[in-house]
Design a protein around this nucleic acid. Sequence first.
DNA 1: GGGTGATGCTGAG
DNA 2: TCAGCCTCACCCC
Length: 267
Amino acid sequence: MPEGHVTHRNVRLQTAALGLGQAISATSPQGRFRDGAALLDGRSLESLDAHGKHLFYRWEGDLRLHVHLGLIGKFQIHLGPAPTPTPATRLVLESNSASVFLAGPMVCDVITPDEEQAIRRDLGPDPISMPRRGHQFVERLARKRVPIGAALLDQSVIAGVGNVYRAELLFLAGMHPAMPANDVTADEAMTLWKLAVTELRRGVELGDILTVKPHDIGVRSRVGLTREEGVYAYQREDLPCHRCGAPIRLNSDGARKIWHCPSCQPG
DNA sequence: GGGTGATGCTGAG
DNA sequence: TCAGCCTCACCCC
């Protein structure tokens, strides 16, 4: 489930599991990252940081490891003895206490600090780690001549929002996905930003995307909710809206699907 | 056991 | 705009 909440959760979990300031062994069972792993092997891990869906590991000797999970990339964290990695595992990082397995990432590269800065420059503000940068989101959104639904997936406008959060944030804001981004008022944009901060931060805590307000579905907590119960719009076509009962609609926005409630998100 | 789709993104045309 | 990439869970037979 690689939207921004997953990278930030991995920063937290992997930092705790691997530990900082100690030598880490790095290998590539799959082989595609053999040279990169050899560069990192035995170096001390100094810190981990996330910006949107990008993960940056800082190593002794000013090296950076850049990981982007893409659509299908996955991390596994094993405390204590690790199982044998599958042959598809791109990278294994191992400390005295834990192992991290990485499979299927879109990007897994050793880069320089300058290259990291260049990647970050092209990214918009991250609502999880930069909650006070809402003004930057408002400015960048106002310059976009695309529908708000497309603008929210543009990582140079807001970093970390993917297809699930896009659908959910627009529902919570009561905005139709096709509304032109440059017609969104500054107040409406700031509302969207605050929703993004709240929802993505909750995603980091829960390790899942659960945007539904429990009272809307007649329960007291989000614990144990299924995906269909836990979100308002995403992948709920033809199901009744949790708020008003109208059937959720599916539309296509280029290659990506987008869902909305025709009654709660008019326009 | 095969087929498919997925929370992403790029590059060719 | 669309194919392609990477991997795996899930569905159907």
